[in-house]
Design a protein around this nucleic acid. Structure first.
Lengths: 192, 192
DNA sequence: GTCTATAGAAAGATAGAC
DNA sequence: GTCTATCTTTCTATAGAC
């Protein structure tokens, strides 16, 4: 591969990493091409030598971040599968991941809207979320041993399920996902 | 209450309902004030007689949608709590809710980004999501009886958990949520 | 391939008539 | 309170020099 091509690839990678970082933190719409390029230490004009539009960048960012996470490839040889999965769970559902101190998951990309930056919106959101959980608990406590903590997990599953379903391309996967969430949620709320 | 005040309230409600509908379908950033007002059959200028800015509208929309869902108030008297919760689950995790044919949940508001409208992005997203599930299954099948369907539900819980955590205001709730998701996810993946 | 400069469009917010 | 008209900012995308 010629030197110039290598240089181009490095630049492309720098842009993609910059984009993943910013999209995860602020959401696609709250990040301009200028932001991405400045964060990659380049100027706006150079962008179009690599990507034909902003939405192409978005698509490539998802794929790039997916490669970055390397779920399968990173497992140390001396670790059992079960331990590895548990470690991944811990890492994924950690404050560090939430606060973007570890490699962000591209599936959560599209879950950030203006809410992140507007305190008033955050407040309304938090109150509504608490209400939702309390509402469910008020009903389940009369017939189930299901704890308030378990309900938090169920709510997350509900919200995640609907969010992902809305973004999916493929009707079969969508329906399977919704059905699975219904079944598992029901099991937990029934106190199994 | 004077007639003019009543008129103003009706207009306000019309704007809010219009906003909830559009934000749910396209996300906050992909909806302009013009869109909201046209959908409410008014013009842009009238907007500022009701809300001081677009982000105030967002906040009020969340609260308005939360009232609309009326989780608790709608329960028919002759229905047992358990049946009612199951019915809510079915409704929440339904195609109709995903496709916005029933009253949308404001907690899912912030989960829609450009992905919805760009086919290329949807495609990349769907592929990445499937990969994530397959990746987890490849490990768990060696030690657990956990089904592929259950893994879908776990993935939804993980994504929902991180998304919600990012939007929350309150560190205590955030940490409780993450911990609950970790525990419940682990339980399911262990094949309990 | 990367830069600066700029065209063109979109959208938040305001002003003033009715 | 609602309208039309307008100001202003921001951002995508392109043009042309090096």
């Amino acid at each position: 591969m010629p030197l110039s091509q290598e240089h181009k690839n490095r630049s492309r990678k720098k842009i993609l990493d910059s984009a993943v970082e910013l999209f995860s933190a602020k959401g696609f719409n709250n990040v301009s091409i200028d932001d991405v390029m400045n964060n990659a230490k380049m100027t706006r004009g150079a962008f179009y030598a690599h990507f034909s539009s902003k939405s192409v960048l978005y698509k490539e960012s998802i794929l790039n971040a997916a490669i970055n996470t390397k779920l399968a490839k990173e497992k140390p040889d001396n670790l059992e599968n079960q331990e590895w999965i548990n470690r991944l769970l811990e890492r994924y559902l950690s404050s560090d991941h939430v606060n973007l101190k570890s490699t962000p998951c591209p599936i959560v990309f599209l879950s950030i809207d203006t809410a992140v930056s507007e305190p008033d919106v955050k407040e309304a959101y938090t109150a509504t979320f608490k209400n939702m959980n309390k509402g469910i608990y008020d009903f389940t406590k009369s017939y189930s041993t299901c704890s308030e903590n378990q309900i938090l997990a169920v709510t997350a599953m509900m919200v995640g399920g609907v969010s992902i379903a809305r973004a999916l391309n493929d009707e079969t996967t969508k329906n399977k996902l919704l059905k699975s969430c219904r079944e598992v949620a029901k099991q937990i709320l029934d106190g199994a």
